[in-house]
């Protein structure tokens, strides 16, 4: 038994020494072996240095799009651009008509066949939750307003939506919700909420698929 212990000690000492020396020489190879057996997501977690994306940009692809810089971003979110909404509003500036009170406009339009916003049907939330004035600034119709009455430009209407849809807004800021324009390379330009959703009836409808699949193997 005594002998056995002695042998055991000697043998383990030799192996230990070998291991030490071996490690010294194979440091690099071992690291490569370890990383090789990590899963891809684990490897990606260790990649944190800023990346230039091979120097590719999509400047030319987004050059035609009018954009505004996204505002109200938390410090850990990279700045990005939002396709401008204001430039698309055909009836803007709203004050062209809305310098008069709604009551006055109603009287003036009583004889016309259809009213100016005939195509707007509000189907967003129950009536006791939302009405026009929940989002539109009735003091100044050229703007929107927050629930607190702070004015917001139509260009940044995502701030209005974010008040209730905070999870969607968070996802939109990081790119998990919404639609990126141009491509994957910088600069990052995304749609405003209202480019995909009709703000007055935000739910998406049914439609026919763009294609009939025929499974072929």
């Amino acid at each position: 038994m005594k002998h056995f212990t002695r042998y055991f000690l000697i043998v383990s000492a030799i192996f230990g020494l070998y291991g030490l020396v071996g490690c010294g020489n194979r440091d690099h190879a071992d690291f490569a072996a370890i990383t090789k057996h990590r899963s891809l997501p684990e490897q990606l977690e260790h990649i944190t240095e800023p990346n230039t994306n091979g120097g590719v940009t999509i400047d030319a692809l987004v050059a035609e799009i009018t954009t505004v810089d996204a505002i109200g971003l938390p410090p850990d979110i990279q700045p990005f651009q939002v396709k401008d909404r204001l430039v698309e509003l055909s009836k803007y500036p709203c004050l062209n008509c809305h310098s008069k009170s709604i009551e006055q406009l109603k009287i003036e339009q009583a004889d016309s066949l259809r009213n100016a916003h005939w195509d707007v049907e509000l189907n967003h939330a129950p009536e006791h939750v939302m009405k026009c004035g929940t989002c539109h600034n009735e003091e100044n119709f050229d703007q929107l307003k927050t629930l607190n009455g702070e004015p917001v430009s139509f260009s940044h209407s995502y701030l209005i939506c974010a008040q209730c849809h905070s999870q969607q807004h968070e996802d939109w800021m990081i790119g998990a919700h919404g639609k990126r324009l141009g491509g994957w390379a910088p600069p990052r330009v995304v749609n405003n909420c209202t480019h995909c959703h009709n703000q007055h009836q935000p739910a998406w409808g049914k439609r026919w698929p763009a294609r009939v699949t025929q499974t072929v193997h």
Partner: peptide
């Protein structure tokens, strides 16, 4: 997007 860019949308999703 680019998985090697820690600021890419795909990395944010992951």
């Amino acid at each position: 997007g680019n998985l090697l860019d820690p600021n890419s949308e795909i990395r944010h999703v992951l």
